[in-house]
Structures are given as C-alpha cells and as structure tokens.
C-alpha cells in the first residue's frame, strides 16, 4: 500500500484508526482506574471525530447525529458516570496489579496480526484502506476482550465492555458508513441502559461482596458443591 495513492479522506481515516488502536493498547496496560476512564473518553472523542469526518465526505447528514450522540455518550456521559462511581466508591487510590503485563501486550500484538489474517479473504472485495480498517476494528474488539480477561476490577471490565462497543461502532462507521439510523439509535439506547445498570451493579457488588475485585466472585462453580441453606 502506497500512502500517496490514497485520497486525503482515506489517509485521515487510516490515521484515526491507528489512533483508536493505540488507545485500545493504552487501555490494555493501564492499571489506574481514573486514567483508564480518561483514555476511554479519548477513544470516544476519536470515534465522534471519525463519524463527523465520514459524514462530511459521504454527505450523509444522519451521521452527524451519530457523531453528536457518540460525543455525548462515549466521550462525556459514560466516562463521567464511571468517574463518579469510582470516586464515590473510593477506588481511585487503588492500583490494579496486572499480572503478566508484557505478555498481555505481546498477546495483543499477536491478536492484531491474527485479525489481519482473518480479513485477508476480503481483499478481492474491497479497497486497501477498507480492509485495513476492518482488520483494525476487529482488533479493537478482540483487544477489549483481552482487557476484560486480564483486568480483575469490575470497573475495568465495564470499560472493556464499552470499548468493545466502540470497536463495533468504528467498524460500522468506516466499512459501511454507519448502520441505518434506527439501528444506531437502538444501539445507543442499549448502551445507555447498560451503563446505568452497571452503576447499579457496582453498588450491589460492593454491598454484598465487599470488593469490586471479580476474583472474589467464586461461589458458583461446577467443581465444588455449593452449600446453601
């Protein structure tokens, strides 16, 4: 791929997708919750920017609405709610111990390569820029999955969950110029409800299990008979 042959739009999209991928890696190795949430907010801002850019070049005014929606939800509201919860539950001093940090980052790189491999068959169908972008958005989804697996703090897992939605939104945006409006609205509604529910859950977990470390959720398992009255 020779960058000079691409249009300005494609170059800009490639830069943005690289930045989104970078934030995904930053999330993966971030042990502090507030920093994690800030990085997540930056990722949301990048997404909103991408949506605005796609709307501008493809002349699809409905994408401006998605851009605005993303900016409000992903860059402001959800990070604000998470930050509020973290401060309320006094989790901001805690540092997560990430075991095998280096290994996880290396695993992340392997995942990105794997995603390029998966999207290889799409080559015939689409331009080079699109193929890159689908690979990267798939990588974002899988990196968020890795984030959920490697972090033990419930709040980090929620950030991972939301970052996964970001990856999906990015995929829809750049490969197909967004989904139909009704679907996007529905997805935004689901995410909003999910973030409220997560907030409720943090409180319940704190009240009943005392800590938001998910390793302490180990009562239900097939190995030991659960003793109950």
């Amino acid at each position: 791929m020779i960058l000079n042959n691409l249009t300005h739009y494609e170059q800009a999209i490639l830069v943005l997708s690289a930045l989104v991928l970078f934030t995904s890696f930053a999330l993966l190795s971030q042990p502090r919750l507030l920093n994690l949430i800030n990085t997540f907010a930056w990722q949301g801002t990048l997404l909103a920017l991408t949506a605005a850019l796609v709307a501008f070049t493809s002349h699809q005014p409905h994408l401006y609405i998605s851009a605005l929606l993303t900016l409000i939800l992903k860059a402001w509201l959800i990070p604000w709610m998470l930050r509020h919860q973290v401060l309320k539950l006094k989790l901001h001093h805690e540092t997560e111990t990430l075991t095998n940090g280096t290994l996880i980052l290396l695993g992340g790189i392997a995942l990105v390569i794997f995603c390029y491999h998966v999207t290889l068959p799409l080559e015939r169908l689409s331009t080079l820029a699109t193929r890159n972008i689908i690979a990267i958005s798939l990588a974002n989804v899988l990196l968020s999955l890795l984030l959920i697996i490697s972090h033990r703090q419930a709040v980090s897992q929620v950030v991972g969950f939301m970052a996964m939605e970001n990856g999906l939104f990015f995929a829809a945006l750049v490969s197909t110029h967004g989904m139909p409006m009704i679907v996007e609205l529905g997805i935004a509604f689901d995410i909003l409800v999910a973030s409220v529910l997560f907030g409720v859950f943090f409180l319940h977990i704190r009240e009943n299990i005392d800590t938001l470390n998910v390793d302490h959720m180990n009562r239900l398992s097939e190995n030991e008979p659960t003793v109950r009255n």
């Binding site: 999955l145 897992q157 859950f201 319940h204 977990i205 299990i209 998910v214 959720m217 239900l220």
Partner: peptide, 17 residues
C-alpha cells in the same frame, strides 16, 4: 444474595460480550 449478584454479573458480562 452474593450468589445472585455473582450470577447476574457473569450473565451481564458474558452475554454482553
């Protein structure tokens, strides 16, 4: 109960993902 919270969290994360 702690068990039901755990079950719901598992359900939420696993099905969401």
């Amino acid at each position: 109960t702690p068990e039901s919270i755990e079950a719901a969290w598992k359900y939420f994360i696993l099905c969401g993902v």
